[in-house]
Design a protein around this nucleic acid. Structure first.
Lengths: 396, 396
DNA sequence: GATACTTTGTCCAGAGGATAAACAAATTAT
DNA sequence: ATAATTTGTTTATCCTCTGGACAAAGTATC
């Protein structure tokens, strides 16, 4: 049984369109909505009034006249509800509270170094509890909680495998739903990141983009026609395990020559450990990407060369992605972007010399600008998307 | 300005649904359509009557009673119009005439060995002219002409590059439209093949599939959520040029270590030429894939081993595709499928040992069953799709 | 074979929502 | 002060779907 057409569907479609228009273009007047959408003035009027009753928009008073009666300007009510976005990292949890436009109103960060499963879930619950309490009063309250996980998550939010957390087959959603009666949206952190960039970051103007998350491993989130592509079981984008060297090193995934063996944070650390002057006067536990960037900035040629080498390998995989998808936009995100200055040139050089001319010509490469909160923001955007998708229909 | 909802949209949506239901499930009765779709009986009745007036369906008389009045069975009128599908190969042109269900009613094949551009377009026109004349009389006539081209084609059907034909920037659509006032749909042969498999072949039941065309080069057509994914400029799927060997052989695309250097028909020929007992008593010009399969069937171990080696490399690229897309179904098509018996085992073995467990578990690998006409059928399906898409809307 | 029950497909009144046009209110231009 | 313009609401009309009534055409049962 499918979605058939009737008057209610028509109304839902048009109400979606009006709400989307207000979300994207407010402040604006009813007449402007009518012009932008092509809907009749009367129709817009009645739909807007319903949206006002539902607390999703409100009037902020008269605007400028253009030679007649002054328009009544409408604003999207971004404070009608709030979302919580959580970036569940390997060593940390970042949790944010955002309004419906993704503005951060509250944030927490805690360390979870080598913590076990019980402690992590308990910390998660604490964070969520606190943020819910700190949420300003609003009509819809906290409408959803998004969580980005460094691992393989299926379409229902079930965590199949998160190697760096040591998790396997964890139904995080169920565990959290015991305490909180709020929709949970759990997804791979690369998927969350892609959506975040699409809604709030460098990808706002773009309907086809690929977000490449370079951290300890490599993952990718694919947005096609403004929608996240999830593949068959919801865990596409395991691009870190594509083969770029047939007889390359062994990977713990069972394969050989996987891209992330040559181009991730992990790969960088391996490389750095083999350098003559390692450990550069640092204690071993202090070797992390921030320190390495610091050393590179200080002029350490060995480190600079290492970054350059990893940057080239990064470029190889990005080239493959460009050739395969022919995307408008590639956004590089996660930890490794800290090294942007040291990897940009080798990265772009590799792409320039290797990618197919046709695809290369129109693709843009950007680094994420959402910073350290990009993962959490992406997770929030899962929740925001979910909240609006319930009241939204589109036609093709 | 977007698509807004009104009564006409409702009607179009429901008429689409009814037509789709008839196309897919006929013969069936009005009541059955009502049950399948959830539409009211009266609504179905009036929409079906319109479809009958438009010659897209017709009544074939009473069906079996299930304890009451006999239903009037409806059939999709597959002969309401016809399409022409053309596989523009490197050495040949295959042209077929099909009904609206993709049944072949007429076919032609000609050789175009090393023919120049003028001769090829003139041959194309001849073929089209002939097939139009041979089309049975019908209400809509020839509703579209699809052409699959071995090269890079943009979203408007403009041929950017077809190296094996020696074509660059050819506006084939315009050239043909001079003589024929029929919609032309021109696309990469892998895209056409993917659509063909989705509509008529091994992919009927599947909404996410990838068709990999292995001929002189390798291309792929990607179908996501029942739709062809075209990327930014309409020429995604240049998967043959993904890097699988960082410092591998030079490719004429400018890159190194491209997959198709190791896994295509071309790669096989290179490999075979380096064998000790080459040319196996054949004249050089007789070395083609059919001959090699023939020799392998005759027990030639060197050839068998070559097939096996190419099969393994094929498996490497297929593994990458599986890891990246996590598709439900992979269909291997084009010339190389002739060697199915000799490459299946090494191919599957490689995938088995290399692909990520999660993705591997649910993917199915098939060989195309549409045979030598698969390209032309795919091209026809472009035209059929176009014909119905004009009268079709869908809601999400 | 007569009667009751089922199934099919059409018809019709009613409902919901969009549209165009009329209109009132508010503002600028002359 | 009057005319013209712009905004947003109201109203009459149109379109399409829906549910229910109904006629036609079967089957099942006694």
């Amino acid at each position: 049984m499918q979605v058939t057409g009737d008057q209610h569907l028509v109304k839902r479609i048009n109400k979606s369109i009006v709400l989307e228009t207000i979300r994207r273009r407010s402040p604006l007047s009813r007449t402007q909505i009518s012009e932008f959408t092509g809907l009749n003035k009367g129709t817009v009027s009645s739909l807007v009034n319903e949206l006002i009753e539902e607390n999703l928009t409100f009037e902020i008073g008269p605007g400028k006249s253009s030679g007649g009666r002054k328009p009544v300007m409408l604003l999207f009510n971004k404070d009608a509800g709030f979302t919580i976005g959580i970036d569940l990292g390997v060593n940390y949890i970042i949790a944010i509270l955002t309004d419906l436009q993704g503005n951060i109103v509250q944030q927490k960060k805690i360390g979870i170094q080598n913590d076990n499963y019980i402690n992590i879930t308990s910390s998660l619950k604490d964070l969520i509890r606190t943020l819910i309490q700190e949420a300003p009063p609003s009509h819809y309250g906290v409408v959803g909680i998004g969580i980005g996980v460094p691992g393989i998550v299926d379409a229902e939010g079930f965590i199949l495998l998160a190697p760096n957390l040591g998790w396997e087959n964890v139904d995080l959603k169920m565990i959290l739903a015991e305490e909180f009666n709020i929709p949970f949206l759990i997804d791979n952190e690369a998927n969350a990141g892609a959506l975040g960039e699409k809604l709030f970051g460098a990808g706002k103007q773009t309907s086809n983009l690929i977000y490449i998350s370079v951290g300890m491993g490599i993952g990718a989130g694919i947005i096609i026609n403004n929608e996240l592509y999830r593949g068959l079981s919801g865990f596409s984008g395991e691009v870190g395990h594509s083969i770029i060297e047939v007889n390359g090193r062994k990977c713990r995934c069972g394969n050989r020559g996987c891209w992330e063996l040559y181009a991730s944070e992990n790969a960088l650390f391996q490389l750095v450990k083999s350098l003559p002057s390692y450990p550069f006067g640092l204690k071993e536990r202090e070797i992390d990407i921030d320190q390495l960037v610091y050393l590179a900035n200080g002029g350490n040629h060995e480190i600079i060369h290492s970054f350059s080498q990893i940057g080239e390998y990064l470029g190889l995989g990005v080239t493959n992605i460009i050739n395969l998808f022919n995307p408008e936009l590639i956004i590089l995100g996660n930890q490794f972007t800290i090294a942007e200055n040291w990897i940009t040139n080798p990265l772009l050089r590799t792409i320039e010399s290797r990618a197919l001319p046709f695809s290369k010509k129109r693709v843009t490469i950007k680094f994420s600008t959402l910073g350290i909160k990009s993962g959490a923001l992406g997770a929030s955007s899962l929740a925001i998307n979910h909240f609006f998708s319930k009241m939204t229909v589109s036609v093709e």
